[in-house]
Computed example of a mutant assay.
Amino acid sequence: MQQFTYDALLFDLDGVLLDSEPLHFEAWRRVLAPWGIDLDWDAYRTHCIGVADQDMLQFLAQRAPQPVSASKLWEQYPEKNRLFIRLIQERPPVPPELDRALERLHERGLPMAVVSSSGRADVLAALEAAKLKPFFRLILCREDVRSPKPDPEPYLKAAALIGASRPLVFEDSQAGLESARRAGFDVIQVREPAELPPLLWRLADQGLVLSQQP
Rank of each mutant, 00 (worst) to 15 (best):
D53S: 09
L156K: 03
L208G: 00
F185Y: 15
A180N: 07
Y77E: 12
Q62C: 14
D14I: 02
Y44R: 04
L161I: 06
E103R: 10
V187C: 14
V209L: 04
L199Y: 15
W35R: 05
T5L: 13
E128W: 15
V94H: 01
S211H: 11
R63I: 00
P152M: 07
R181K: 14
L18T: 12
L138I: 06
Q2Y: 03
A160E: 10
E103S: 08
E79S: 12
R30D: 13
A125E: 05
I162T: 04
F4M: 11
G184T: 12
P167W: 11
D40C: 09
L87K: 01
Q206C: 03
R120L: 09
L199G: 05
T5F: 09
V145H: 00
K131L: 15
R137E: 10
V114C: 03
L102V: 00
L177C: 07
R181G: 14
L32V: 09
A43P: 05
M112W: 01
S69P: 06
F170P: 07
Q66A: 07
R146H: 14
A164T: 10
V115F: 07
S117T: 07
L105M: 05
A180S: 02
L124C: 01
A70H: 02
A27H: 05
K131A: 15
F135T: 12
A175L: 11
R146E: 15
L124N: 03
D172C: 03
D122I: 07
A158P: 02
V123C: 05
L9M: 07
I162W: 04
R86Y: 12
L161G: 10
A194T: 15
R142V: 13
V16E: 09
A64C: 13
T46W: 11
D40P: 04
E103Y: 13
V145L: 05
L57C: 03
L73K: 02
L18K: 04
P150V: 07
R100W: 15
A8T: 08
L210D: 05
C48E: 14
Q76Y: 10
D172G: 04
D53I: 14
G36N: 08
A8V: 08
A43E: 10
L200Q: 07
L203S: 08
G36I: 06
Y155I: 03
P198Y: 12
L208C: 10
I139L: 05
F136S: 00
S173C: 02
L105Q: 01
P167D: 09
S116Q: 00
Q206E: 15
G15N: 04
L9C: 12
V114Y: 04
D19T: 00
D19E: 09
L105K: 03
Q3F: 10
G163D: 03
K149T: 08
Q3R: 14
F59T: 12
F59S: 03
L156C: 08
A125G: 03
A126L: 08
Y155W: 08
D144H: 07
D12V: 02
L199C: 08
L102R: 00
L23E: 09
P167R: 06
V115R: 02
A204E: 15
A61L: 07
Y77T: 13
R30N: 11
E75P: 04
E192Y: 11
V187G: 05
R191M: 11
A183M: 06
L127S: 02
L210Q: 01
M1R: 02
P78N: 06
